[in-house]
Design a protein around this nucleic acid. Structure first.
Lengths: 248, 248
DNA sequence: AGGCAATGCTTGTATATACAAGTTGATTGT
DNA sequence: ACAATCAACTTGTATATACAAGCATTGCCT
C-alpha cells in the first residue's frame, strides 16, 4: 500500500508506461516492505542506482528524494541513504503521548509486559486483522510506566503466523515494539481516537477510578499482511498531540 | 512559522548564505501568509520565477515542487501553480470526525451558530492566543448538527483585532469557518486530543447524559498572528480518524 | 600506537538543455 | 454564430555536467 499509492500519484491510468523515477521508487519500496532492507539498512547510492537502472543521476536522485520527503528514507550528506528507523519516522511521534516526549529528555520510561497469550479469534478480530480462517492471534497487554506511575495500557493483537516466535521472545533487552518493528516491515495505518470509560480490570491496571474518561487510540494497519491492531488506553488527563499541520 | 521551519531544514546555522531555492520558498510562503496571495491564487510560473530571481528553471521548479509536496501549493500541468485551498489541504480532513466524511456523500450537515460575543480575556486565554494586553477576544459556540442530531460543539476563541468584522457577519451563505479561512491566511497548528467529561451546559447542547465521555480536540495556532484557538467536543461514541501514516 | 592528512565516496546545490504533454485562449474558416 | 485548429504557455520527465560539502576509511608520519 505504501509504495503503490505513492506511485499512483504520477501515473493515473497506468496504460502509459510509468516514469523512470517511479520505477525506482517502486523497487526501493518493495525491498523495504519485503523486509529485504531492514531499518537502518543502506540503500543503493545515487550512482549505483544510476548504473542499475541506466538513468541519469538526477533521475535516481529524484526517487530517493521523494521517498525521503515521505519519511521512508533518511539521507546524510557524505554517508549515504538509509531506511528510516521507526524512531526517525514522524508517524509514531504524531500519536504519542505528550508525556512520552518529556520522558525522552531524561525521565525513565519502562514498559512492563503483563500478559502474553494466544487467544481465540473472534469474527470481529478476524475482520480487523484481515485474517484467514486458520490463523491464530497473540494477545498481549503492555502497561507503560513512568516514574512508577502507570500512564498507558497497550492492548495488542498480533497475527501469530507472521511473528511465530513472538511468544518465545524475552523482551528485556529490546522492547516488544522494537521487535515487532524489526520483523514487520514498513506499512500504512490509520488511527482512530475515541473517548471511553475504561472497564474495571483496566481501571485497576491504570490505577484510576471508574468514572474517569480515557482516550483510546486504535490503530489499524491496511497492509495486505494485516499484522497487528492495537489499542492504547491512557490514564485520564492525558493529551495526545497531533503534530503540526497547516490549517485554515 | 510555516515558511521559517520549512527552510530551516536546509540551512542549519544560518551563517552560510541560504540556498537559492529556499529563498524562493520563503518568498512564496511570505506572500501566502500575509494574505497577499489568497486561496486559489495563481503563483508565478517557473519561467517567471526564473526571471525574477535570476536562477535556472530547475531551481525555481524545486521551490514550487517542495511546497507542493507539503500541500501548500497545487500544480496542474498546462494550467499553472496555485495556492492550495483549505479543502485541498489534508490537515482538516485528518482531524475531522468520521461521520463528517460520510455526510459529505449526501447527508446534510448543518452548523447552527449559537452564541457570538466579545468576552473578557483571562490570563490563560492571553497565553493560549498569544495576545497582547489590549486585544479583545470573540467567543462563539457552534453546534454542528447532522440529520437534526447534535454531533459536535465547537468552542472558538478568535483574536478580535484580526477579524474586526467577525461580529457583523451573517453566516448564512458562507459558514463562519469559511469566513475565517478566507480572512486568516495559511498557518500552522497543533492539535491536542483529550478525553473529558463534558460540563452540564454542554451536555444539554449535545443532548447527552452527564457521565458520557467526550473527545475534546483543542487546536492551537503557532503563527505570530495567533488568530484562533478552538476546542471541539464530540458526542460520546464519536471517533476521530487520523489519516494514514507510515508506521512500524 | 596514536594522531593527522589525504583520498575517495556520498549527498547537496545549481545550471543548461531537450522534448513531452496538458490547458487555455485566440484565430481562423465555415 | 459556431466550431475546429492552432499557437502560446504551463508543468512533467529526463539527461549531462559542474562544483561544493560532509563522511569514513586509508595510510602515512611522528
Amino acid at each position: 500500500m505504501a509504495s503503490a499509492n505513492n506511485n499512483s500519484n504520477n501515473s493515473s491510468t497506468k496504460k502509459d508506461k510509468p516514469a523512470k523515477y517511479t520505477v525506482i521508487k517502486q523497487y526501493i519500496c518493495e525491498n523495504i516492505e519485503s523486509g529485504e532492507w531492514p531499518q537502518n539498512a543502506k540503500v543503493p547510492s545515487e550512482n549505483e542506482l544510476t548504473q542499475q537502472f541506466d538513468v541519469s543521476r538526477m533521475t535516481a536522485r529524484r526517487a530517493l528524494q521523494e521517498l525521503t520527503a515521505q519519511g521512508i528514507l533518511v539521507r546524510s550528506q557524505g554517508a549515504g541513504t538509509f531506511v528510516a528507523t521507526f524512531k526517525s519516522q514522524s508517524s509514531l511521534l504524531k500519536i504519542r503521548n505528550i508525556s512520552d516526549e518529556i520522558s525522552e529528555r531524561g525521565h525513565e520510561h519502562k514498559a512492563e509486559q503483563l500478559l502474553l497469550q494466544a487467544i481465540a479469534v473472534t469474527d470481529e478480530l478476524a475482520i480487523l486483522l484481515n485474517l484467514k480462517n486458520n490463523e491464530h492471534v497473540y494477545y498481549s497487554e503492555i502497561l507503560h510506566l513512568e516514574n512508577g506511575e502507570p500512564i498507558q495500557l497497550e492492548q495488542r493483537y498480533v497475527n501469530a503466523s507472521l511473528v511465530p516466535e513472538y511468544l518465545l521472545q524475552n523482551f528485556t533487552k529490546i522492547t516488544s515494539h522494537e521487535y515487532l518493528s524489526s520483523v514487520a516491515p514498513l506499512t500504512e495505518a490509520t488511527h482512530e481516537v475515541e473517548a471511553v470509560l475504561a472497564e474495571q480490570h483496566i481501571c485497576q491496571l491504570l490505577n484510576i477510578e471508574e468514572i474517569a474518561p480515557c482516550l483510546q487510540v486504535r490503530r489499524r494497519t491496511w497492509s495486505k499482511q494485516g499484522i497487528v491492531s492495537l489499542a492504547i488506553l491512557t490514564s485520564p488527563g492525558s493529551k495526545y498531540r497531533l503534530g503540526s499541520h497547516l490549517v485554515f
